[in-house]
Structures are given as structure tokens and as C-alpha cells.
Amino acid sequence: MKRGLSIFNVASLALGLAFLYLPIVILVIFSFNASRLVTVWGGWSTRWYAELLHDAAMLDAAWVSLRLALLSATTATILGTLAALALTRVARFRGRLLFSAMVYAPLVMPEVISGLALLLLFVAAEFDRGFWTTAVAHTTLTMCFVAIIVQSRLIGFDRSLEEAAMDLGCPPLRTFFTITLPLIAPAIASGWMLAFALSLDDLVIASFTTGPGATTLPIRIYSEVRLGVKPEINAICTIMIAAVTVAVIIASLLSKRRIAASAGEGTPGAAI
């Protein structure tokens, strides 16, 4: 009756993880392939990484994507946190139903529809499409993910902590900044990370909302990939994977420390 892994359990885990990781591992290995032919192994080499450094278009696109992700993740985190506070802490206000619908809807909205809708808005409003319109688009869609993560933290939040602070003479606004904010900070941080990753990841919405001069990295990669497999693409993908892996490991180490510090009181769901 104890918890334990049967052979079937171990097999499904092993196969599942292999399925998830094998393609990525293969991609990483082939980024170090000296041969231009992706399937022929020509020995270890870092030449594709060197060639990347000379690919100005790719570097430009990477720089655009990075700035875009930083800006939209930060704006989305502020807006999303405010939205989460409004949804959990204000029992009723005019148009609450519409508001919560607008917060949840983007989570399940197909990207092609969101992208099309935003593009039509920008055209109707006669905005020049480019970096800023894409930033607005990414902010709008990622703030909803931030709102959900922060909201789940706020729901599991012990309100008596705030009441204790106010009971001890702390005014409401200062209570928010000295008690509430530090306690939901982990969720805000994971919300920011998720928003950043989603922005960096997005191809479809950016394709609709961007304009000349603001080609993002996924758009750039996409146009290359359509022409076939290239070792340089493997190389840049490997760099992105490495960056993400390091970031996730650092984040989980940090949250582990925090969880240990707060004696197991953490939100495992906030990892997503």
C-alpha cells in the first residue's frame, strides 16, 4: 500500500522523459557538428557558433527580442499583479465579470486570433507597426498569465498576517508594501519569468503586430527554418536552451531556499 514505483510506472516515466528530451539533446549535439550536412557527423566543432557572431541579422533580431521581452514582461508583471489584486481583494466593482473574463480569456485564445485582432486594432488606430505595437501585444497577453499566478498566491495567502500588521498599527498602504508584497514576491517573480519566456518564444503574434525594422528572433528563425535545417540554427537554439536551463535552475534553487526558509510553505504551482 505504500507509495512506490512499479515497473510500469518507471517505464512510463523513462519513456516520457526520453520523448521530451531526446529531440532537444539531438539538436544540441548537432549544433557542435563540424559538417554542414546536418545528418553527417563531421566531428566536434564550434564553427557554427563563430558564424553566428557574424550573422548581423540574427544578432539584431536577438537584440530586438531581448529588449521586447524585458519591456513587455516588466509591464505585464505590473499590470498582471494589479489585476490579480483587483480580482482577489476587491469583492465587487462595476464590470467585475467582464474584467475577470478578459483576464482569463487570453489564456485559451488561439494565437492567430489574438494576433489578427491586435493587428486590426493597430491598423484602425493608425499606429505604425513595429517594436512598440509588438510590446503592447505581448504585454496584453502575458499579463494574464502573471495575473493567474499572482492570484493563486493571493488566494492561498493568510489574511491574518495583514490583519496582524494593521492591528500592530501599520497603515493599510504600508501593510501592503511591508507584508503583502514580500509574501507574494515569489509569485510575482515567477510571473515575470513566464512573461519573459512567453515573449521571447512568441512567433505568431509578433508576426502580426510587428513591422519593418523590428524582426524578432523567432520570426528570423522561422524564416530560416522554412528554408530547411541549418547548423547555425542549431547553434542559436542551443544558446537559447542553455540560457533557459540556467535561468530555471537558478530560479528553482532560489525558490528552494525560500521554501526552506519559510518551513515548507511554498506554492509548487507557481513554478509554471
Binding site: I26, F30, V38, V229, I233
Partner: peptide, 12 residues
């Protein structure tokens, strides 16, 4: 890891 990368991995 980016969506596009994972699809690209399968093209490989």
C-alpha cells in the same frame, strides 16, 4: 525552451 526550437528539433 522556445516552442519554435522544439518544433525545429523535430525537423532535424
Amino acid at each position: 525552451t522556445a516552442f519554435l526550437i522544439r518544433i525545429y528539433a523535430w525537423i532535424n
